[in-house]
Design a binder for these strands. Structure first.
Lengths: 208, 208
DNA sequence: TTTTAAACCCCATTTTTATGGGGGATGGCA
DNA sequence: TGCCATCCCCCATAAAAATGGGGTTTAAAA
């Protein structure tokens, strides 16, 4: 019996999928919650689900962060993304975080079931659209990132990522702290962020 | 009408697949050859196939080298691997060379047809076993770190990575800002860092 | 030539972080 | 039972960061 959990904020989808799985031979869905927080709270360590279907856009913590947390605590639990998002960044973040599959929400229930079966036999469920993105990533046809940042601004971003303070960046670049401030103000405007933290995240996620 | 070519040295498989496609509505297979050399020789530039099913183990040039040659001369032609090989090296070499899909030879004819359809609608056919290897490639190169952080501390790290301030983290977790402070102090001690920036960097680099 | 983008510098103010303390409350384990 | 880890909360202070403004210079573009 394959024990499936669902983390999904749309109650309709949650219910339909849960009912479907419970009706299918060999599947059982006892957990269907709307957030990662709720999932972790209700989790019974003595009765872990085999597979978790995870959405990305959730109230509170995102599903991608959810993967990290769940896999960290229970590495044996398989996590399959089930979401509407199909942009490369979310896909790769999910896979790197430890997802074992990636299905789009328009996947028919029947294919979700066969996906689960292939997962159990050492495969990975993946929507063709997603597979395409992944393949494109390999063949290097990735659209080049055109960063709007100037060379100096990029250098400062590197400093931020290295965990340096304004003063340390100033010393490293042989400019005044005031100039560092100036550049950072402009960086924030260009990237539409309001803190070092966001710049560092964007940078390390390849969004700059 | 989707024009399919087959490059495959096993004449049985070649014939079965060719016949199947010709019998299917909307598909046509006029070219079924046993080597890349033969394929290139018989190729009519005015009547290019839409898709080529390519084996890897072939007399003469390998199918992977074949991808490169074909894509170089006719970039618009889609190439789908159809082979028994499932080792990571051949998979990645194929995808990097420009393959648009990767199916194992045990794939039922019916699924080969749906694979072609998803290819035509912007997807990529990929056997679950292959998808698994590809996914493992993403998540696999991350050595499992045994984090010294407690669950709550991990949750706070997630908040920091999301670019939240102490107050926002407190709200999300329904605890006091002072408690957030308390946890962060402990996190810094455990990780030997002295700023949010360093925590975020470590986290996104998988060092936590 | 005027304009524009990029780099440089300074000042002032408010908010947020970092760091040091001080308490409690659990719940598991020796 | 006391110990330990984990979690919860409060205080105070110094440092750093975020945001607004004000400028100059230079080199390339219009």
């Amino acid at each position: 019996m394959i024990n499936v959990a669902i983390v999904e904020d749309d109650s309709d989808i949650r219910q339909v999928l849960c009912d479907f799985l419970n009706a299918e031979e060999g599947f059982s869905c006892q957990t269907a919650v709307e957030s990662v927080e709720q999932f972790l709270e209700e989790l019974d360590p003595d009765n872990l689900p085999t597979v978790v279907f995870m959405d990305i856009g959730l109230p509170g913590m995102s599903g991608i962060d959810g993967i990290r947390l769940v896999k960290q605590r229970h590495p044996s639990v398989e996590i399959v993304m089930l979401t509407v998002y199909h942009d490369s960044q979310k896909i790769f973040n999910s896979l790197c975080a430890g997802a074992s599959g990636y299905l789009l929400k328009n996947t028919p229930l029947e294919e979700i079931r066969t996906g689960l079966e292939s997962l159990m036999s050492g495969g990975a469920p993946m929507s063709p659209q997603i597979a395409r993105k992944v393949i494109t990533h390999f063949s290097g046809n990735q659209p080049r990132k055109t960063t709007p940042l100037t060379p100096k601004e990029q250098e400062i971003v590197v400093g931020l990522v290295d965990g340096l303070s304004y003063k340390m960046i100033a010393d490293r670049m042989n400019i005044s702290v005031e100039t560092v401030r100036f550049h950072i103000k402009n960086i924030y405007q260009k990237l539409h962020v309001h803190s070092k933290a966001e710049v560092i995240s964007k940078s390390l996620r390849g969004e700059i």
